[in-house]
Design a binder for these strands. Structure first.
Length: 485
RNA sequence: GGCCCCGUCGUCUAGCGGCCUAGGACUCUGGCUUCUCAAGCCAGCUACGAGGGUUCGAAUCCCUUCGGGGCUACCA
């Protein structure tokens, strides 16, 4: 029987989770779900100077919002917890101690300045820069004298001669000559562990079977494998690696704060749907293989395989995300669309949230559903229905004050005042017969003026539906106000 | 500089030796529809980085080259 698949997403929250992180999380999640395995969420907060509690909380919130549910991790715990590295410090310390006893690691007392000096010299001499092994074989006396000087030593892993070869599930066989993998630091001078130690120890102790992570970690893999060896892990028990291609910004540079908006929180505020973000991100570096692109999370879980992941980096394209977001919005049920739109209407202060307002929003949503790309467009689209101090937009003013428009408004006002049943069908029938047929006006001219008078803008939801929603009294009032302009 | 990864339309991709005069999606352009804006439908532009091989046959295999990226921390 095959081992159960255990995949982990292990971000280091030094900021809001961004597009690249989430793409990785999504693939981790999809792989775990596809294989009926476990999705483990672990927080790598060993760099206490950069990781904050707020970022950790935000990361948890973002994953939840996206629907990437985890089987083990923060808030729910699990058999191999804790899942915050800051709570596992003694585990790393124990291993580091063991490595020293085994002579796999050693104390190094070189100062940052000394190291930098020697690295510069190496560069100048055109030699691969890296730790030169100065402290590899310190005698007891030397160790004692450094300690007497109160120098803080780091723990360094001893890289033996040779090379490390592993099979990456996406890139195939990769090997690194140890000449280019210098002795690396496991534990800081203050005793805190570094990523390289913590990640390897945790992946082993949490029984992770597959590591799908960003390509930037590719060259740290031999170091990670070296730690497995020191831990005494058998080669057949190493996790399988798969290094995902980067998600790049528009200018072909790695996505970053400077490179457009990348934080998932930003997309959420802009009215992107979580399922749209996931759908789009799934297509960055992976494809189902056929010509289908619009898929659900469930389908992603069913279809996702590492074999179909690309090895080349992908550029992030906002236009395509928006297109997919529009598709997903159009696919929403009315109730779902309503529920998701309300927060945007409230925060834009278009509505306060009364039952009457919500009822009106609900009846208006169908006519704007196919006209928006993002949820944050809803307030602007529906504002005309709720505004207390209605006014025609500056730019459109001149288009309702000309004589032709006055004619249209005057005639419309008379016809509509006499209209009994107030439905979009009856409004349209009345207006078409009086303005188009009798006055012989072009529809876009006649209805254009009315649109501005009633909605305040040249762009609006369909006119007759809008008037029906507004109601007869308000509609007529706006037309007569426009006549007075 | 060194090591490693990557290279199909503007972008995301399909393609794993003949089905490719290279398919789909987004974008863009034109058209249809139309009360604006959208949506929808139709059409069009546009790609195998370059050069060598291997082969009856290469986008697919090999080599070189060029280009892009990552790493080279007591970051992850």
């Amino acid at each position: 029987m095959a081992k159960q698949v255990r995949v982990r997403f292990a971000p280091s929250p030094t900021g809001d989770l961004h597009v690249g992180n989430i793409r990785t999380a999504l693939f981790d999640w999809a792989y775990a779900r596809h294989t009926n395995g476990k999705f483990i969420f672990r927080i790598e907060d060993t760099d206490t100077t950069r990781v904050t509690d707020e970022y950790i909380a935000a990361a948890i919130d973002t994953l939840k919002w996206l629907g990437l549910d985890w089987d083990e991790g923060p808030e729910i715990g699990g058999e191999y917890g804790p899942y915050l590295q800051s709570q596992r410090l003694d585990i790393y310390a124990d291993w580091a101690q063991k490595f020293i006893v085994q002579k796999d690691a050693y104390y190094c007392y070189c100062t940052a300045e000394e190291l930098e000096e020697r690295r510069d010299a190496q560069k100048a001499a055109n030699v691969a820069p890296g730790y030169d092994g100065k402290c590899r074989n310190l005698s007891e006396n030397q160790l004692a004298s450094f300690k007497a000087e109160d120098r803080l030593g780091v723990v360094r892993m001893r890289m033996p001669e040779g090379e490390t070869t592993f099979v990456d599930q996406i890139r195939g066989e990769i090997s690194f000559d140890h000449k280019f993998v210098p002795d690396f630091v496991l534990v800081r001078g203050d005793g805190s562990p570094l990523y390289t130690l913590a990640v390897a120890v945790d992946d082993i102790s949490m029984k992770v079977t597959h590591i799908l992570r960003g390509e930037d970690l590719l060259s740290s893999t031999p170091r990670q494998i070296r730690v497995y060896q020191a831990m005494g892990v058998k080669e057949e028990d190493y996790p399988t690696f798969a290094h995902l291609p980067f998600v790049m910004g528009q200018d072909n540079a790695k996505l970053s704060k400077r490179n457009g908006e990348v934080s998932i929180a930003w997309y959420r505020d802009k009215g992107f749907l979580p399922e749209a973000i996931c759908n789009y991100l799934a297509l960055l570096g992976w494809s189902p293989g056929d010509d289908v692109e619009n898929i659900t999370m469930q389908q992603l879980a069913e279809l996702f395989t590492v074999e179909r992941v690309n090895s080349s980096p992908a550029r992030f394209d906002m236009k395509k995300l928006e297109a997919i977001n529009g598709d997903k919005i159009r696919a929403l049920t009315l109730d779902d669309f309503l529920e998701r739109s309300l927060p945007f209407l409230k925060s834009a202060q278009v509505i306060m949230g009364s039952d009457d307002e919500i009822a009106l929003v609900k009846s208006a949503l169908p006519i704007i559903q196919e006209r928006i790309t993002r949820l944050d467009e809803v307030p602007a689209m529906l504002k005309f229905l709720f505004t207390k101090n209605f006014a025609v937009e500056e730019d459109s003013l001149s288009k309702v004050t000309d004589t032709a428009s006055k004619e249209v408004l005057k005639r419309s006002l008379a016809e509509l005042t006499a209209l009994g049943e107030w439905t979009h069908e009856s409004i349209e029938a009345t207006l078409r017969s009086s303005l188009i047929e009798e006055l012989g006006l072009k529809p876009r001219i006649a209805f254009g003026s009315l649109r501005i008078a009633v909605t305040g803008s040249t762009i609006s939801p369909p006119l007759f539906e809008s008037m029906e929603l507004l109601g007869k009294i308000v509609s007529l009032k706006r037309i007569s106000s426009a006549l007075a302009l």
